Simulated assay, not measured.
Amino acid sequence: MSAAEQDDRAESIRMIRDSAAALAPPGGDLKRIRDLRFQDPGFDAGLFRQMGEMGWIGLRVPEALGGAGLGLGEMCALAEELGGALVPEPLIAASLSAQLLAAAGRHGALPVLLAGEVLVLTAWQERPDTLEAPGTPDAPRRFLPMASGADFFLVPVREGDRLALYELPAARCVPKVERTQDGGNLGSIVPNLVEGTKLSDDIGPMLADGLDEAALVTAAYLLGGMERAFGMTLDYLRTRQQFGRIIGTFQALQHRAANLNMQLALTRASIEAAAATLDAGAIGDARRAAVSRAKARAAEASLLVQRECIQLHGGIGYTDDYDVGLYLRKAMVMANQYGSATLHRRRFMATSPEVEE
């Protein structure tokens, strides 16, 4: 990439971050997030529509199909900003569905999804902690984020050696919903293909790529939450006094904060490297290894950083009224989405050329 192209890319990413600030101000009030907790559908449909109007749902969809046609660098930058604001709207899941609809060649639902007028969720997961979509026709599909607000489900179904894609209206396939630690919800459905419409005979390769991208974007969302919680913690260390001194001057706490800062830097480097690798066109094992390295680090580091931030706040950090605890709750829910740290470490070991036999 030439210097001019690098400058253009940096400007594109900067503009994406600026656009995110309009809906998710950095360091903003979290009252909206608190008000949406443990409610149905768990997110603001009006704000989801605004995300569509700003082109976020179709960020990875080609321009010819109504999307923005941007790269993973831009998508990860957006997710990072949203993670810092704890945005509960299911943008990552909606973006996956948008890419599948675009790839399927049936675009009826795509325009309304890109506009944020409906929520379409992809019901691919049959068991915990996997990135594989078996497509068992009658198997329950689980762990659908914000499923109580879905209008349609996309269901991959194994037909011979291919993975077909069906669309089911949520009204004919009502999800069973369970609350999550952060106040959102996850749903399960049992697909009734008689009620569905077949969109594609083979969506397998696109789904595999889409799940990799969703894992990487989830890592970026976790990074945004880590950074915001760490910033809150530094502010606390700089103002809280004990024994007549600002506690941030205590060497032991400085060492702990320095370790957290290192975790943030390593996570950012891993995510940015993975986004650049995918945007450069990596395929196969190189693609999977880059994603897994980033997601494993983000999943593990997010829980470490968030727990340390709670402890560095002392007793107030454990209260639900104090905002730093919201970031730990969110990390507990999202760290395992699109694969846990354990799964991705295992996949990295199996796919990375850096690992010697």
Rank of each mutant, 00 (worst) to 15 (best):
A282N: 14
T233V: 03
L234R: 07
A258V: 06
G248S: 07
L237D: 00
A269M: 09
R268H: 07
G284W: 06
A229M: 09
K295L: 07
A276W: 04
A296W: 02
M226V: 11
A252H: 06
N261L: 13
F243N: 10
L264H: 02
V291N: 00
I271R: 08
L264S: 02
G284C: 11
A257H: 13
R297K: 10
A269I: 02
I283P: 10
E300I: 00
T277Q: 13
H255D: 12
R245E: 13
E300Y: 06
L223I: 00
T249G: 13
H255E: 14
D285Q: 14
N259P: 00
M226C: 13
L278G: 03
R256E: 12
T239Y: 00
R228P: 06
F243K: 05
E300F: 03
A280E: 09
S292C: 12
R288H: 07
D235P: 08
L260A: 12
A269P: 00
R288P: 07
A273H: 06
S292W: 01
T267I: 07
L237F: 02
G244R: 06
A269Y: 01
L237T: 01
Q242H: 04
R293E: 14
E227D: 09
G248H: 02
A276I: 06
G284N: 09
Y236S: 00
A229H: 02
